[in-house]
């Protein structure tokens, strides 16, 4: 294990319990986040990106639960802590940013009060000191005239401004890790760039590790250090951003990247690959991508591929670990 890892996810599985039994939605994924690193997570809608993010911040909802594996924050296991201890980690050591800044803030409370409330939950500061810190945070995320803005309510801010405030709230207690779930999807392009620059600066200046979920390959190209590709609840490829974007190994990842005409086209969304991704509970045997894969062989429908190193990347595909033919003797 890399000693500088801020966050380690090892063999994490998430399942939903229902009357008809338990359905696996995330199957044994592993990755690490180094200090100051931005890890992009991409994948089709329903691949399990948000589930993974929610598990990291200890906010899996409803029937969803962690079915296996572990999450380590700075070397210390956090997924099995009692709820109250998990709450103390949330916001203090792991911050979160969600997609829609318009609905992330309490409409009845001034942004300043929301900041002070968050700060005082985690840090032993007096009201006055917390207020000062809140102003500093507003200034840090690029809100002009914090003293005036402090007492204003969310509806008095634009979408981009609100996302800045959300970021200020997320970093209020200087977390080591931030989980950002599509933080720019709801914003228009020019605002997106500003928010990304802000995140980049956080990672660089404060050493915050950021897990950035997005649909937008342009976003990945712009700020991610490494990128992880998810498909149907599994991690299929993870590696340095240049490597994965330019020469993805896994056929699904390659399909995603290959279909992007140019990285300069920022709006490029995840393109469609023929067929559709199976929902949890309907995964096929073996590699869940094999029904859509042009290079699939007999082994692909029989055996789930495991992650294996290929150059600087790690790939879960039989093509890179012994071939797609069935091993002799089976």
């Amino acid at each position: 294990m890399n000693p500088a890892s801020a966050l380690v996810v090892r063999d994490l599985s998430i399942s939903f319990d229902s009357r008809h039994g338990s359905i696996t939605a995330i199957d044994s994924i592993s990755f690490q986040l180094a200090k100051g690193e931005i890890l992009g997570i991409v994948g089709e809608s329903g691949a399990g990106k948000s589930l993974t993010g929610n598990a990291l911040i200890g906010l899996l909802q409803g029937p969803g639960r962690i079915a296996g594996g572990e999450i380590l924050l700075d070397g210390q296991r956090i997924d099995n802590l009692p709820p109250e201890d998990q709450r103390k980690i949330r916001g203090k050591r792991i911050g979160a940013i969600f997609q829609d800044p318009l609905t992330s803030l309490d409409p009845l409370m001034s942004v300043g009060d929301q900041l002070v409330e968050t700060i005082r939950t985690h840090l032993p500061l007096t009201a006055t000191a917390a207020r000062g810190r809140a102003m500093d945070l507003l200034a840090e995320v690029g809100i002009a005239d914090p003293a005036k803005r402090f007492g204003q309510y969310p509806h008095q801010f634009s979408g981009g401004m609100r996302q800045r405030i959300v970021i200020a709230l997320a970093i209020a207690a200087e977390p080591e890790v931030i989980v950002a779930d599509e933080p720019t999807t709801a914003l228009d392009v020019s605002i997106q760039a500003q928010i990304l620059a802000l995140l980049r600066r956080l990672a660089r200046d404060r050493g915050t590790a950021i897990m950035l979920v997005t649909h937008d390959m342009g976003v990945i190209a712009e700020i991610a250090d490494r990128v992880a590709v998810m498909y149907a609840g599994r991690l299929v490829e993870i590696g340095p951003v240049d490597e994965v974007l330019r020469a993805a190994r896994h056929p699904y990842a390659a399909g995603l990247m290959g279909l992007i005409p140019s990285l300069a086209r920022r709006e490029a969304r995840l393109p469609q690959i023929a067929g559709s991704m199976p929902r949890p509970g309907h995964w096929p045997q073996g590699c869940s991508f094999h029904p859509r894969c042009a290079q699939a062989g007999p082994r692909c429908s029989a055996e789930v591929p495991v992650l294996a190193s290929v150059a600087a990347s790690t790939v879960a595909c039989h093509l890179f670990s012994g071939g797609t033919a069935l091993p002799k003797g089976t």
């Binding site: 911040i57 906010l59 709450r87 103390k88 980690i89 949330r90 916001g91 203090k92 911050g95 979160a96 969600f98 829609d100 609905t103 992330s104 803030l105 309490d106 409409p107 409370m109 409330e117 968050t118 939950t121 985690h122 959300v166 709230l169 997320a170 209020a172 207690a173």
Partner: peptide, 22 residues
């Protein structure tokens, strides 16, 4: 079910504060 409640939890606020204040 609103997003700001989920975000309030993500900020690490206590249940009491999430439930009553927000």
């Amino acid at each position: 079910r609103a997003d700001f409640i989920k975000f309030a939890r993500a900020r690490g606020l206590s249940d009491r504060s999430v439930h009553l204040r927000h």
